[in-house]
Amino acid sequence: MASKSEFSGADSGAEWERFDTRQRLIRYFLTLGVLVILAAAWRSMDINYGYVASAPNEVMDLLTRMYPPNVIYTSEIVGPLLETINISILGTALAIVMALPVAFLSASNTTPNRWTYLFGKFIVSFTRSVNVIIWALIFVVLFGPGALAGVLAIAVRSVGFTAKLLGEAIEEIDRGPVEAISATGASTFQMFIYGIIPQIKPAFISVATFRWDINVRASTIIGFVGAGGIGVALQTNINYFKWDAVLTILIAILGIVLVSEGISAYLRGKVS
């Protein structure tokens, strides 16, 4: 029988702390450290506090000048919007073509040797680490302003991502069926078509549509450096302070982004 004193006695510990002293010190120092870094970061940015104070007003002013959106302008942005979608589709298609060999190189079970593996991994991480707008800058220098530079920027930027995910799918395939196909006397290429491709096809479709979805967003901005699409029109209108037209464009972008997201989600749901 438990005595009542177990609940009331001072010796059983009326005080309770969640952390012991050392843990608490560490937590305080971590919190303090984060705060110091934040404060230092804020101070060293040389932010003009006049701007900060007026920012809410400026944003409100912007919003009132944007509304209502310029409906008449809608007809003028159909062309650039189509170009944006074209860029995203061609860029994604080109990316997939380039990513396939890279994927097989960067998958440990299909790469010929260590060096090809490292080479595959290098392409994957390098193309992924350079932002699409930087690729666009480079390709505008090479091919001049226009959609071609945009397509190439989107394509090159997407290679790493696409190849990485496809490579992972290849690494996860079941060796059994592949072996069974080659045991029937099939050639290497036939083994590929019947044993490997059916296994990576769902991953392939979902990676492609997922990347296309990302690329639709990316192709709305590469116009800022002259690489085609709706971004060119957006920048022009901002520079001329035509805010009602800007809002029209923003709504249009929102529209295509949401539609492409829906399509991409639908297709991915279908293959899984």
């Binding site: 940015m45 990316a218 709305t220």
Partner: peptide
């Protein structure tokens, strides 16, 4: 809405709202 726009589109609008610079 916040997810749909690319960071550069948001940035270009913010520049017009609060001026050039890190803010």
């Amino acid at each position: 809405v916040t997810r749909s726009f690319h960071e550069l589109i948001v940035a270009i609008v913010m520049v017009k709202a609060v001026g050039f610079g890190p803010l």
